[in-house]
């Protein structure tokens, strides 16, 4: 049982929550959500190709309460992954590695994603309600 005394490498439970962690975790989570959502995009395109009946079926699903909740989640996931993805591309280029910049850009991608999501759904609602 001596094995139990060995040191463990620290995992998330020992850290105080910080925005940099949140942005990283959300990037992974929204990426997973989007890869599921991309299947629905393909499903919609297939329905469009298959004919009017199938397309109407897809539209009914997209306009149902469950469909709208999913669409709302995917729209935010897309915008968050977009904003944070641009942030990651800039960091890949070597920019913004100071801690203060890192924290600021995390907040920026979070705020940007919320603003974009609100804008899109404001447009959807003003354009005459959802589906």
């Amino acid at each position: 049982m001596a094995d139990m005394q060995r040191p463990l490498s620290p995992h998330i439970q020992v850290y105080r929550w910080q925005v940099q962690m949140v942005s990283s975790i959300l990037h992974r989570a929204t990426g997973i959500a989007l890869s599921v959502g991309s299947l629905v995009v393909v499903g919609g395109l297939l329905a469009l190709a298959a004919g009017e009946e199938q397309f109407d079926c897809f539209k009914t699903f997209a306009g149902s309460p469950l469909g709208l909740v999913l669409l709302f989640g995917w729209s935010w996931s897309l915008f968050y992954h977009l904003c944070n993805g641009i942030r990651h591309l800039l960091q890949d280029a070597g920019a913004g590695y100071e801690i203060a910049q890192f924290v600021r850009s995390s907040w920026l991608s979070l705020a940007g994603s919320i603003v974009l999501t609100v804008l899109v759904w404001a447009y959807v609602l003003t354009a005459g309600g959802a589906a």
Binding site: F55, L78, G85, L89, Y123, G128, A131
Partner: peptide, 23 residues
Amino acid sequence: AAALVGLGIWFVILVLGLLHADY
């Protein structure tokens, strides 16, 4: 990733344009 920045925004605009479109 860089390509999807543009294509993703374009796709959202396309879908928004088709909001109440019939078949």
